[in-house]
């Protein structure tokens, strides 16, 4: 399977998850967007050496994933495969930041390893929350919510079109790629072939856009995109946003794990 097919499969599987009728899907998409943004800001606002203090926040993506009945395995796999840039940059921390920071008996852990662990936890939390948001909402509903939250329609219409035609053009690109691979006995594509191949795809994209435009005009398109999808804000959504915000604030202000650890060890908290 080519990279494009794999990517399209990923898009499709997340959309399929979002299409089911779950408790998470029934929430107003705006509530989920607002809560997720608050979550991300809370996570990144922690001190660079915070590791344990961040852990209670894992409850947010986990609880949402359960509400949405999302399968753990594909989401975790995506998390692991996701851009290793943060990990690569983070790996320099243990090399550069060698002051001891934690002491367990005779052994000590350097500040660099602590901040590296913090980067890993941050990465898992923020990226996990974004995946849960989209897998529990779906692109179409998400775009309606973004429009209602004030994102210009030019942007949301663009997102919807891109998402719709990524499948069409992606499939076309995958077929073209496969055809070339079958005729090239495993050689990588030369630049001399790349230009014409992508160029042809591009010209076909232009022609397709022209046909789509005519079809839209024939159906009365006047420059404005209208959606029949409506969002309904209920008390549940208010409770959802306020409840989670209160939780984030609590975790941000009180170092729960440190407190629990001291309580468990019998020291005064």
């Amino acid at each position: 399977m080519s990279r494009i097919d794999a990517a399209l499969g990923d898009l499709r599987s997340l959309e399929a998850l979002a299409a089911r009728d779950t408790a998470l899907a029934r929430l107003d998409a705006r509530a989920k967007v607002v809560a997720t943004l608050a979550f991300v800001v809370t996570v990144v606002s922690f001190d660079r050496y915070a590791v344990a203090a961040l852990l209670p926040l894992a409850f947010f993506p986990l609880a949402l994933a359960i509400q949405g009945e999302l399968p753990a395995k594909p989401l975790l796999r995506k998390l692991l495969l996701a851009a290793p840039f943060a990990v690569m940059v983070g790996l320099f921390n243990p090399l550069l930041d060698r002051a001891p920071m934690l002491a367990f008996g005779d052994a000590s852990v350097s500040a660099g390893w602590v901040s590296f662990a913090s980067i890993l936890v941050r990465f898992a939390l923020t990226v996990g929350a974004a995946l849960v948001l989209v897998a529990g909402t779906g692109m179409n509903t998400l775009c309606v919510a973004l429009t209602r939250l004030g994102v210009p329609q030019v942007m949301t219409a663009q997102l919807l079109f891109l998402f719709r035609y990524a499948f069409v053009l992606g499939a076309e690109a995958a077929r073209t790629s496969t055809a070339r691979e079958l005729r090239s006995s495993g050689r990588a594509m030369a630049l001399a072939a790349y230009g014409p191949m992508l160029g042809h795809l591009l010209l076909r994209a232009f022609e397709r856009a022209q046909r789509i435009h005519m079809a839209m005009l024939a159906r009365g398109f006047d420059g404005e995109l209208r959606s029949l999808r409506t969002l309904r804000w209920s008390t549940r959504d208010t409770v959802f946003v306020l409840g989670w915000s209160a939780f984030f604030l609590l975790v941000r202000l009180v170092d729960l794990p440190q407190w629990a650890g001291r309580a468990l060890l019998g020291a005064s908290p």
Binding site: Q158, R164, A166, L169, A173, F206
Partner: peptide, 14 residues
């Protein structure tokens, strides 16, 4: 509107 959308899909695939 459709041209930008389709070109976005093109870049995504490319």
């Amino acid at each position: 509107v459709p041209l930008m959308g389709v070109l976005g899909a093109f870049v995504f695939a490319a």
